Computed example of a mutant assay.
Amino acid sequence: MFKTRLMTACKVMSVVFTGLAAAAPTAAQDQKVVMSHSTKSFAFLTYFAANTMGYFDDLGLEIEEVRTGSGSKALAAMVSGDADVYLGSTATAFKSREQGVPIKIFAPIVRQLTSSIVVTRDWAEEHGVTKDSPLEEKLAALKGARIAISGPGSGADQAARYVIAEAGFDPDRDVELVAMGNNAATYMSAMQAGQIDGFSTSPPHIHIAEQEVDGVILINMAAGELPALDGYFYIGMMARDGWLEDNPDTAARLAAALKMAMDAVHDPERNAEVGQAVYDGYYSDMDRDLFQRVWEDQTMSVPTTLDMDDQTMRDVIAFYNRFSDQQIDENLISETVTDEATTAATALLE
């Protein structure tokens, strides 16, 4: 069983979901873990799958979920000790470590940069591109576009800047990036009003825009459409150094549950079952057909292994440093990433 707390400035709401049981190694004693993350974004898909399929339960873990509404609040909950584990951007761990905050990445969640770009159909037709146009044509069409992002320095901002630069344009001169906060409904209203041409964000919002306001998904990063970022280690499971030192077995069981979810998602015979469990646990308020389209797009973002090699982490740092004034030093990798939990998880599952 897992419990979700939706954290806002003025209230706490508790919702209890029942996990679906599955055969797995058992643990001797239940251990409560408070897990913080921002929203119901598909960027946390591996975790959602492990939770709704009951894999944490099977390994003796009781998950209490704290959903904060923003990545910074979710990170703060973990750093302060209100949460044990944080799900978020891998670059965040390096930035935090550089600022003296002792946290480590100990397991992978998503291996695609999920922030994608959706545009209005009028804009797409005017520029002669469709969802299925060659990537080179879609990139070339971006010059002069007005693209909404959540804010400067956000994942959506960095993703948009990377795409624009890959097209050979200057993100600050050739495209207008409009900071509009985190509310996707605001983006869609602005698209319909002609105030912006599109926006950059993670699924399911690009698919919702496609269905509800006739948007066109121009660049689907989560599906690996941009080769330069295919396989990018975007979201990781993180904890304070002290918590990892005090709870090595719990960290290993968390990583093992993630690996069980990875295997199930990539198993053609179990994929539909996992999708239904995730839908029931997190997205039952979404149109089922829409969910299915998002699910089919997003499953490739789920890793196939627990590996977190140095080159993968250097790619994370290179991506962040490309458009940031505050550079991350590669020497932080050994301090910020640990494979102790994933190594122990592999042994647990053998």
Rank of each mutant, 00 (worst) to 15 (best):
G54M: 00
T92R: 08
A27T: 03
R67N: 07
D309K: 08
N247V: 01
A145N: 05
E350K: 15
E176N: 13
M308C: 03
T68W: 00
D246Q: 12
I105G: 05
A27E: 09
T305G: 00
T68V: 00
T346F: 05
V316K: 09
G88V: 01
G128Q: 11
A228Y: 07
F233T: 11
P248R: 07
Y187F: 14
I208S: 09
F106G: 02
Q311A: 14
Q195F: 07
R173V: 07
G19H: 10
E335H: 14
V85F: 01
S70Y: 04
V110G: 12
P203A: 15
D122M: 11
E65I: 08
S115G: 07
A193W: 07
V16G: 12
F48K: 13
A28M: 10
D82K: 10
Q326E: 15
I206Y: 09
D307M: 07
G168I: 01
D246H: 07
F199I: 03
S154C: 04
A255P: 00
V216A: 02
A256M: 03
I164E: 10
K11S: 12
E212T: 14
Q29H: 08
L254V: 10
F42W: 01
D122H: 13
L61P: 02
L229K: 11
V33C: 04
I328R: 01
G153Y: 06
D285T: 14
A184W: 13
Y279E: 05
D197A: 03
A50M: 10
D246F: 02
D339A: 11
V15N: 10
F169T: 01
G281N: 06
Q158A: 13
I164R: 09
D287Q: 09
D214L: 07
T304M: 08
F233V: 08
V101R: 11
D157W: 12
T39D: 12
P227N: 09
